[in-house]
């Protein structure tokens, strides 16, 4: 299995995501944002957390227009898998691969802590290792994680079973407690919490491991 991790100049969870992919057994290639094409044969593209271009204005907006993101969009449109975490989720909404937008946290402050995260669906390559309804402990660390969508979109996401995760105790004001959403073909996941920070029992627990293991299994049989 081959994974690519996109590196923007302000990415700072790129190594963490690469480690999580590697622990699950994937071969990882780091891809620089100025590259115009993805390496051949990538099974999944990871867009990591961080502050891609400083994010002084709208988080992820500049990254979404970088050369490599055109290739990521192409990869997704061909049915490829994409995982965007934190800043990566913001980038995915900015590219239009995922609906909705991420706004400033309701309390206007950066929030870093472990939160209870409820798995809403096990019907995706990302969440197949969990049971729907299962509650995970996964860290969040963001200033702009307040997921916003109108009632129609929330109803559609709910109706299509595309809400992947919700917060048990909503830390940031997200509509309908939404922490992660899937694309229509269920192959693109964006989420604010950091599963890659929960893959080692010595730090952060291991509740994120099942996502990377499931991806490995699902992509192997795909």
């Amino acid at each position: 299995m081959k994974a690519a991790v996109i590196v923007f100049p302000g990415s700072n969870c790129d190594r963490d995501l690469a480690v999580a992919f590697e622990r699950a057994g994937m071969d990882v290639t780091m891809v620089w944002h100025k590259d115009t094409a993805l390496p051949e044969g990538m099974d999944i593209i990871g867009i990591p957390g961080g502050f891609s271009f400083g994010d002084y204005l709208r988080c992820g907006a500049i990254a979404a227009n970088s050369p490599i993101c055109r290739s990521v969009v192409g990869h997704a449109e061909r049915g490829g898998y994409v995982l965007g975490i934190c800043n990566g989720f913001q980038v995915l909404t900015e590219t239009g691969l995922l609906p909705g937008a991420l706004m400033r946290n309701a309390n206007l402050k950066f929030i870093c802590k472990s939160v209870g995260l409820k798995v809403e669906t096990s019907d995706s390559a990302f969440t197949a290792g969990y049971n729907a309804g299962q509650v995970l402990s996964i860290p969040v660390a963001h200033h702009d994680g307040n997921y916003n969508a109108d009632a129609e979109l929330v109803a559609r996401l709910t109706g299509e079973d595309r809400i992947a995760f919700t917060y048990m105790d909503n830390p940031n004001g997200s509509v309908a407690d939404i922490a992660g959403v899937l694309s229509e073909n269920r192959r693109v996941l964006g989420m604010m919490p950091h599963p890659e920070r929960a893959v080692d029992e010595r730090h952060g627990g291991t509740d994120g491991s099942a996502m990377f293991r499931a991806l490995m299994d699902q992509l192997a049989t795909a």
């Binding site: 402050k109 870093c112 920070r197 730090h203």
Partner: peptide, 25 residues
């Protein structure tokens, strides 16, 4: 205070701040 700081980026934090010493692998 501490929840406004990223305590875990780099994914090597063994002990987060709050009580006594913090630990990084």
């Amino acid at each position: 205070v501490y929840e406004q700081y990223d305590q875990m980026v780099m994914s090597d934090t063994v002990r987060t701040p709050g009580l006594g010493a913090g630990i990084i692998r």
